[in-house]
Design a protein around this nucleic acid. Structure first.
Length: 865
RNA sequence: GCGAGUGUGGCGGAACAGGCAGACGCAACGGACUUAAAAUCCGUCGCCCCAAAAGGGCGUAUCGGUUCGACUCCGAUCACUCGCACCA
C-alpha cells in the first residue's frame, strides 16, 4: 500500500496501484499474480471436490475422455495440448448442464520401466509409482477438471485383476489361443511384437530391425471381427475420415476366389495346390504358379529332386533376407522352377510350379497363380524367366492386344478372349461367372480375405499383466480360476542383462498347483501387450473402485459410450482398433450395451518447434513446467488453444505465449477497472441484465450486440466445431470492444448494467480456457459459487440485429464503394438507392447496364458493358 | 504405386449454404507516457504504380472451367505431409 491522490507515487511490482475513473479514486487495483491465484484455486477446488461426479440416471451425461498417458515422469507439450482441449470440452459441457465424466489415469505397464530397472537398478514398480506422482502433480498444476477419485493405473493389481479376468472371458469364448507361429521379434526389446507394432520392418518403439522367429504365442482372434470392425466404421460419423480410411486399409478386405490346381499325383498327403486370387477372370491366362518358400508342399517337391541343392540354396537365401528387404517393392522378383507341374482347374492344362521370393506364406494360401499379361508383378517375373504370356482380356477400343507388343501388364477392365465359354464376356461379369463355374466343378469357391492378422498379445517381458494361464502336464492349458485372481506380478525380482524375463527364474511364481488335478504345474510367464490394458480402461473409469466386477452394468450403461475421445492420430490403428475390438467382444458377451466405444473422436495435431516434432534428440523441447511457472497454466492453455485449430499441427512460439499472457493481463485490468463501480450498482452479479433495447443509444447498442455475438460465437465454436482458436479470438474482440467503449464513452454516460452484463459473460465464457483467473475474477465481481458450476450464458437473438448494415457495391464484380443502409432493405429499393449513388454513377457513366444483382444486407453488383 | 490430407501477408492463422480476402494474435515500424527502460496506450502494416494524397492495378500453390461474382464449386498440374504397400 502506498501514496494518496495528493502524493503520487511510482508503483513497483507487487504494489497495489491507484486507479482513476471519472476523475475520482475508485479502486485499488491488484496485480495479476497468476502463481498465487492458480495455487489458491487448485487447492480450493480440490478441497471442495467440485469435479467429482456420480452415476445419476436422472441427469443427462457426457463422457469426455483424453487418452491416458504413459507415466514417463515428465509432461510434454503434446499432453498439455491434449488435456487442454479435453478440459475446455468438459468444462463447457458441465456449464451446459451435463453430468460430465472426465477421468484421468495411467497406462502404466511397459518397457521403459523395465529398462530403467536394468540400467539404474530401480524396481519398475517404484520407478512407475514415482513417475505417476510426478506427472500427477504436473497435471494438477494445469488446473484440469478431473475427478481424481476415479484415477486408475493399469499396473495396480486392482486394475490388472480385471484385465486378467477379461482375458479369461476371451479365452472361454475361444477368442484367445496359443499357437506356434512365425512372429515378429525385436532383438533389442527382447520380445515379440504385434503386426501393428512393426513399422517399415522395424520396431515402432526402438527402431531395431525386426526378425522372424517361430514361437509359441498367445493371440486374440481379432480376425473374427474383421468384417464388423470394417462395416461399423460407417456408424462412426463423428470420427475423422482419415482415421476410418487408415483402419479400412489396415483391415484390408479383398474379395476373390480360392481355387485348386490339382497335382498329377498325391505327394505327402497333398493332392492339390490351393491359390487365392482376386482376378479369377484371368484364370485362362495362367502360365505358371508360384509358392512361398515356406509353403508346406515345398518339402515334398524337393524329395528325389535332382536340383534339390540349387532350390534349397535359393530358399535359404530368401529366408535370410530381413523383413524389410523381403517385403520391399524395390526387391527384384526372383524365383526358381521346381521341376513339377500342376493342372489348371478350368483348362486341365499343365502349369509349372515355381518358388518365388515375393509370395507371402501368411496371406491367402501362400500360393499364387501367375498371369503375366494382367498382373504387373507376374509380367516382370515372366519376362525375367522367359515364361509364356497369354492375353485373356482385350481392352475396349484397342483392336488386338498381343503379348509380344506389351511393355507392361494390362490390369484394367476389358473383354475376355482365349477363355473358352467366357469369350466375349466383360471381365467384371466373368469374375462372378467363373467363380460360380469353379464352385459348380468343386474346384474352387468365392473367398473374402483380410490383411488383418490375429493380434499377438504375449510379451516375453516382466512389466506387464501376467497371462492367467497354468500349464499342467496332465491337464494341459488351464485357466486360473476367478477366485485366484489376480495373478500377482512379484515386485522383488532380479533383472538379467540378457533381457530374459525375471519371471522365468522366480520359482515361487512359476511353480503352482494345477487348479484342475491339484498336481504340480507351472504358470505362464509371458505377460500381456500393454495395448490389452488400454483396450478397456474407459470402461473401468465408469466403476473405478468396484472390487467385485471389472465394471458394473449400471455404471457402464449410464456413461458409455465415450461422447468425445481426444488423442493423437498415432493411435489411429493400434489402440483405436483394439479398443473397438474389445468393445464388440464385450457387447457379444453381454457385458456392455454398446458395440462401439468412442462416439466422437478428435485427433489432435502435433506440437512442433521450428517445423519439427519436439524431441530430446533434436534439442527443441519446451518444458511445460517451465512455461507454467513463468506464465501460469492459464496462459499455457490459452496459447495452445489459440495458436491453431486442434487437428492441425501447432508451431510453438514463445512470443505467442507472451501474447496470450498479455491478453489475460488485459482482461484482468478491465475487470479491475470496473469492479468498484459494478459493486455500486449491485453486489448481486448476473441475473440476466435487464436491458431495454429500445432505450439504448448507439454505443450501448453496439456493445450489447458484441456481447451477444461473442456468446453465440463461442458457444458454437466450442460446442459444435471445436474451433477453440476462433472462440478465443472472438473473446479477444469482445475485450477490445469493451476497452474501446471504456475509452470512448465518458465515464458518467457509461451504462453500468450493460458493462456488468458484458464482464460477467466474459468471465463465464473465458473460464473453460483459463479457469483460474476467471474464478478469481468471478469472486472479485461478486459472483456466487464457482464459475464451473454456473450455467453457460445464453444470448439474445434480438440484440444481434443491427439497425444499419454496410453493403458492398460492385461494378463488374469489383468493389467500388460501401454504403450504410437500413437492415433488411429489400432488393429493389437497394438497387434503386445504389444506382442513384454518385460514385456509382461515375463508374457506369456512358456504359450499358446489363444487369443488377442485389443481395439484401450484403451487396449490389452492377454488370455493365 | 494406391489412399487421405494440406497449400492464404514476414509468421501462427480468420473468412468457404459462392458475396468486403487477411478477423484475432505475433513480429515490424512510427508516436504518446518516462530522466531512461519495462509495462501500457494511440497509429501504420499483402504486393505494385504514383513525389504524396486521391486514385488505380495485381493478389488465397499453378493452369483452365462454371458464375453477375470463386480462397470457397468443377477439371488438370505441381509441392509438401500422413497412412498402406510384392496382400496376388
Amino acid at each position: 500500500m502506498g501514496g494518496t491522490a495528493e502524493e503520487p507515487f511510482r508503483p513497483n511490482r507487487g504494489d497495489k496501484v491507484l486507479f482513476f475513473l471519472g476523475g475520482s479514486i475508485l479502486a485499488m487495483e491488484e496485480r495479476y499474480d497468476f502463481q498465487e491465484i492458480e495455487q489458491k484455486w487448485q487447492k480450493v477446488w480440490e478441497q471442495s471436490a467440485i469435479y467429482g461426479v456420480k452415476t445419476d440416471p436422472a441427469k443427462p451425461k457426457y463422457y469426455c475422455l483424453e487418452m491416458f498417458p504413459y507415466p514417463s515422469g515428465q509432461l510434454h507439450m503434446g499432453h498439455v495440448r491434449n488435456y487442454s482441449i479435453g478440459d475446455v470440452v468438459a468444462r463447457f459441457k458441465t456449464m451446459e448442464g451435463f453430468n460430465v465424466l472426465h477421468p484421468m489415469g495411467w497406462d502404466a505397464f511397459g518397457l521403459p520401466a523395465e529398462n530403467a530397472a536394468i540400467k539404474h537398478g530401480v524396481p519398475p514398480a517404484q520407478w512407475t509409482t514415482e513417475n505417476i506422482a510426478n506427472m500427477r502433480s504436473q497435471l494438477k498444476a494445469m488446473g484440469l477438471s478431473y475427478d481424481w477419485e476415479r484415477e486408475i493405473a493399469s499396473c495396480y493389481p486392482d486394475y490388472y485383476k480385471w484385465t486378467q479376468w477379461l482375458f479369461l472371458q476371451l479365452y472361454k469364448a475361444n477368442l484367445a489361443y496359443k499357437k506356434k507361429a512365425n512372429v515378429n521379434w525385436c532383438p533389442s526389446c527382447a520380445t515379440v511384437l504385434a503386426n501393428e507394432q512393426v513399422v517399415d520392418g522395424a520396431c515402432e518403439r526402438c527402431d531395431s530391425v525386426v526378425e522372424k522367429k517361430a514361437l509359441e504365442q498367445w493371440f486374440f482372434r481379432i480376425t473374427n471381427y474383421a468384417q464388423r470392425l470394417l462395416d461399423d466404421l460407417d456408424n462412426l460419423p463423428g470420427w475423422p475420415d482419415k482415421v476410418k480410411t487408415m483402419q479400412e486399409n489396415w483391415i484390408g478386405r479383398s474379395e476373390g476366389a480360392e481355387m485348386d490346381f490339382a497335382l498329377p499325383e498325391t505327394m505327402g498327403g497333398f493332392d492339390k495346390i490351393r491359390v487365392y486370387t482376386t482376378r479369377q477372370d484371368t484364370i485362362f491366362g495362367v502360365t505358371y504358379l508360384v509358392l512361398a518358400p515356406e509353403h508346406p508342399l515345398v518339402e515334398e517337391l524337393l524329395k528325389n529332386n535332382e536340383r534339390e541343392d540349387e532350390i534349397r540354396a535359393f530358399i535359404s537365401k530368401v529366408l535370410n533376407l530381413s523383413e524389410i528387404d523381403r517385403t520391399s517393392t524395390e526387391t527384384e522378383k526372383e524365383g526358381i522352377f521346381t521341376g513339377h507341374y500342376c493342372l489348371n482347374p478350368m483348362t486341365g492344362e499343365q502349369v509349372a510350379i515355381w518358388i518365388g521370393n515375393y509370395v507371402l506364406v501368411d496371406y491367402g494360401t501362400g500360393a499364387v497363380m501367375g498371369v503375366p499379361a494382367h498382373d504387373q508383378r507376374d509380367f516382370e517375373f515372366a519376362n525375367k524367366y522367359n515364361l509364356p504370356i497369354r492375353v485373356v482380356i482385350q481392352p475396349e477400343g484397342i483392336a488386338d492386344l498381343k503379348a509380344e507388343d506389351m511393355d507392361h501388364a494390362y490390369v484394367d477392365k476389358g473383354t475376355l478372349v482365349n477363355s473358352d465359354a467366357f469369350n466375349g464376356m466383360p471381365n467384371e461379369d466373368a469374375l462372378g461367372a467363373i467363380a460360380t463355374e469353379l464352385e459348380k466343378l468343386g474346384k474352387g469357391s468365392r473367398k473374402i480375405n483380410f490383411r488383418l492378422r490375429d493380434w499377438l498379445i504375449s510379451r516375453q517381458r516382466y512389466w506387464g499383466t501376467p497371462i492367467p494361464i497354468i500349464h499342467c502336464s496332465t491337464c494341459g492349458e488351464v485357466p486360473v480360476p476367478d477366485e485366484q485372481l489376480p495373478v500377482i506380478l512379484p515386485d522383488d525380482v532380479e533383472f538379467k542383462p540378457s533381457g530374459e524375463s525375471p519371471l522365468r527364474s522366480r520359482l515361487d511364481f512359476l511353480n503352482c498347483q494345477c487348479p484342475q488335478c491339484g498336481g504340480e504345474a507351472q504358470r505362464e510367464t509371458d505377460t500381456m501387450d500393454t495395448f490389452v490394458c488400454s483396450s478397456w480402461y474407459f470402461l473401468r473409469y465408469c466403476s473405478p473402485k468396484n472390487e467385485h466386477e471389472a465394471f458394473a452394468a449400471e455404471d457402464v450403461d449410464y456413461w458409455m459410450n465415450v461422447d468425445q475421445y481426444i488423442g493423437g492420430v498415432e493411435h489411429a490403428i493400434l489402440h483405436l482398433l483394439y479398443a473397438r475390438f474389445f468393445t464388440k467382444v464385450f457387447y457379444d458377451l453381454k457385458l456392455v450395451a454398446v458395440d462401439e466405444p468412442f462416439k466422437n473422436l478428435l485427433t489432435q495435431g502435433m506440437v512442433l518447434m521450428d517445423g519439427a516434432k519436439m524431441s530430446k534428440s533434436k534439442g527443441n523441447v519446451v518444458s511445460p513446467e517451465e512455461i507454467i511457472s513463468r506464465y501460469g497454466a492459464d496462459t499455457a492453455r490459452l496459447f495452445i488453444l489459440f495458436a491453431a485449430p486442434p487437428e492441425r499441427d501447432l508451431e510453438w512460439s514463445d512470443r505467442g505465449v507472451e501474447g496470450a499472457h498479455r491478453f489475460l493481463h488485459r482482461v484482468w485490468r478491465l475487470v479491475q477497472a470496473y469492479q468498484p463501480s459494478l459493486r455500486q450498482v449491485t453486489t448481486l452479479m448476473l441475473q440476466p441484465a435487464d436491458i431495454n433495447l429500445s432505450e439504448l443509444n448507439k454505443d450501448d447498442k453496439e456493445l450489447l450486440r458484441q456481447i451477444n455475438y461473442t456468446v453465440k460465437k463461442v458457444t458454437e465454436d466450442v460446442g459444435q466445431r471445436f474451433n477453440f482458436n476462433t472462440a478465443v479470438s472472438a473473446i479477444m474482440e469482445l475485450v477490445n470492444a469493451m476497452y474501446i467503449y471504456k475509452e470512448k464513452v465518458p465515464a458518467e454516460q457509461q451504462n453500468l448494467a450493460l458493462i456488468k452484463d458484458g464482464i460477467g459473460k466474459l468471465i463465464l465464457i473465458l473460464a473453460p480456457f483459463a479457469p483460474h483467473i476467471c474464478e478469481e475474477l468471478w469472486q472479485i465481481v461478486g459472483g456466487k459459487g464457482y464459475v464451473y458450476q454456473q450455467s453457460w450464458p445464453s444470448y439474445n437473438e434480438k440484440a444481434l440485429v443491427r439497425d444499419e448494415v454496410e453493403i458492398v457495391v460492385q461494378v463488374n464484380g469489383k468493389v467500388r464503394d460501401r454504403l450504410s443502409v437500413a437492415n433488411g432493405l429489400d432488393a429493389d429499393t437497394l438497387k434503386a438507392q445504389v444506382l442513384e449513388n454518385e460514385r456509382v454513377q461515375s463508374f457506369i457513366d456512358g456504359k450499358n447496364v446489363v444487369k443488377v444483382i442485389a443481395v439484401p444486407n450484403k451487396l449490389v453488383n452492377i454488370v455493365v458493358k
